[in-house]
Amino acid sequence: MRVLVRYFAVLRERRGKSEGWEELPEGSTVKDAYALLCPPAQLPVGYAINQDYVAGATELKEGDELVFLPPLGGG
């Protein structure tokens, strides 16, 4: 399945891109996607699908917009 992944802040710099369609195995969770796309994935992150916070165990669907959220710094 393909999902649109957007990268921000430290993850954008590490990946060298701000977004991209990524191919993932069917049934992948957002946590699986993080381990696969951002190794070694040691930075603790939050997850959002289609602009809503989700838990790490949430399964992805074809066409989802997935974002890994590094520790926030607003305010």
Binding site: F8, A9, V10, A48, V67, L69, P70, P71, L72, G73, G74, G75
Partner: peptide, 17 residues
């Protein structure tokens, strides 16, 4: 979801709350 990068005279770093 907002991130802050501190800029120093000799580099920069992402920081968090």
């Amino acid at each position: 979801p907002i991130w802050k990068k501190e800029i120093y005279a000799d580099g920069s770093a992402w920081t968090s709350n």
